Amino acid sequence: MDRQTVAVRVLAHFVPGDNALSIVAPESDWLDIRWCHEDDNETLRRELPEAEVIWHVLRPLSGEDLRRGPRLRLVHKLGAGVNTIDVETASELGIAVANMPGANSPSVAEGAVLLMLAALRRLPALNQVTRQGRGWPTDPSLGETVRDIGSCTVGLVGYGNIAKRVEQIVLAMGGIVLHTNTGDDGTATWRPLHALLADSDIVSLHVPLTPATDKLINRAALDKMKSTAVLVNTSRGGVIDEPALIEALRDGRLATAGLDVFTEEPVAPDNPLLQLDNVVVTPHVSWYTVDTMRRYLIQAVENCRRLYDGRDLINVVNGRQDGERLHR
Rank of each mutant, 00 (worst) to 15 (best):
M1Q: 10
R3Q: 12
R3T: 13
Q4H: 09
Q4P: 00
V6R: 09
L11A: 15
H13A: 13
A25R: 14
A25M: 12
S28E: 14
S28L: 08
D29P: 14
L31S: 12
D32Y: 06
H37N: 12
E38Y: 04
E38Q: 14
N41H: 13
N41I: 13
T43M: 12
L48E: 03
L48D: 05
P49K: 08
E52F: 06
I54T: 05
H56A: 13
V57E: 01
R59W: 01
P60H: 04
D65V: 03
L66R: 01
G69Q: 01
T84F: 00
V87P: 07
A90I: 02
E92M: 08
L93P: 03
G94N: 06
A96R: 03
V97A: 10
M100R: 03
A103T: 11
S105W: 03
A109H: 08
G111P: 08
G111S: 09
A112H: 07
L114R: 11
L120C: 05
L120M: 11
L123A: 15
L126K: 08
V129H: 12
D139I: 10
E144P: 05
D148I: 02
I149C: 06
S151F: 07
C152D: 12
L156Q: 09
Y159P: 02
A163L: 11
E167Q: 15
V170E: 11
L171F: 06
G174D: 14
G174A: 15
V177D: 11
T187G: 15
P192T: 13
P192M: 14
A195Q: 15
L197T: 09
V203R: 07
V203Y: 04
T210N: 08
I217M: 13
N218V: 11
N218Q: 10
N218E: 13
D223W: 03
K224I: 07
K224R: 15
A229L: 10
V230G: 05
V239D: 04
I246S: 02
G252T: 09
R253N: 10
L254T: 04
D260T: 09
V261M: 03
T263K: 00
E265T: 02
V267H: 00
V267Y: 01
D270G: 01
D270R: 00
N271V: 00
L273R: 00
L276R: 01
H284A: 00
S286P: 01
W287M: 01
W287R: 01
T292G: 03
R294V: 03
R295W: 03
L297T: 06
V301G: 05
R305N: 06
D312M: 03
V317R: 00
N318H: 07
R320K: 13
Q321F: 11
E324Y: 08
R328T: 08
